[in-house]
């Protein structure tokens, strides 16, 4: 039962205790753009795309991790937020080698869709052009670090839902890389079950199905999986 009321974009919104601003907004049809968030996984608050303004707080807060509070006044869209979101996505596009034209996810990519949604038609920052590798040692899947935005959805889905914890992050800052096990080739991983949830969860073309012309993503409903797990049923 909804137990608190807050205002989002001038609308009175009811929310359950413990719900995040993002959940409260979405349940009332208010769209907030997200990137690292995936329903069913523990929110990370890493990409900062879902930031919103809360009255009385000096800085925007990520809506995916901030709990709704009684009487909160939230703005999800303003010039300041739009500018910040655009800059964040531009920064991500400049960070690795996102060459959309030669990507398996071209046209189905969440990063690309978000860039289009935010009206980004060019990147003002210098392209970093790091030398990043592609791991195709796995029998069925591949990992292209050129397209990774370090959202850690793969890490979380592998740990929290599959329970394998094959993926994690190695290195730090600009040198951060998603690694399997102890930075071994994915194909040699002793923990990977080959379930493919990471590929499903990946928002870009970083994790892909080998041999497939277009990797189909989003076919697993993670929320359902989580619900089933909680009920202890298959």
């Amino acid at each position: 039962m909804p137990r608190l009321t807050l205002t989002i974009d001038g609308r009175a919104v009811r929310a359950g205790r413990g719900q995040t601003i993002l959940q409260a907004a979405r349940s009332h049809g208010i769209a907030i753009p997200t990137l690292c968030n995936l329903e069913g996984l523990t929110p990370l608050g890493g990409c900062r795309v879902c930031i919103v303004e809360v009255e009385g707080r000096p800085r925007p807060v990520p809506s995916c991790t901030t709990r709704a509070e009684q009487g909160m006044v939230v703005t999800t869209d303003s010039e300041r937020l739009a500018a910040a979101r655009r800059m964040i996505v531009e920064l991500l596009l400049a960070e690795r080698n996102h060459t959309c034209a030669v990507c398996v996810m071209n046209g189905n990519c969440e990063l690309q869709t978000l860039a289009t949604y935010l009206g980004i038609d060019h990147v003002r920052y210098g392209f970093i052009s790091p030398l990043a590798s592609v791991d195709i040692s796995h029998e069925r899947f591949g990992m292209d670090h050129n397209r990774c935005i370090l959202c850690r959805r793969c890490v979380r889905v592998c740990n929290e839902i599959e329970g394998a914890h094959t993926w994690d992050v190695g290195g730090r800052g600009a040198a951060s890389r998603i690694i399997s096990d102890l930075a071994e080739p994915w194909g040699e991983s002793a923990t990977c079950t080959g379930c493919g949830k990471c590929v499903q969860a990946c928002p870009t073309g970083a994790l892909f199905e080998k041999g497939a012309v277009a990797t189909r993503k989003g076919t697993i409903c993670l929320e359902r999986l989580v619900e089933w797990r909680k009920r202890g049923e298959p």
């Binding site: 596009l93 080698n97 060459t99 959309c100 034209a101 030669v102 038609d121 060019h122 990147v123 392209f127 052009s129 790091p130 030398l131 990043a132």
Partner: peptide, 11 residues
Amino acid sequence: VNGNVAALRNP
């Protein structure tokens, strides 16, 4: 707009 295929050699 962003270098695209021509810029694949940059890394």
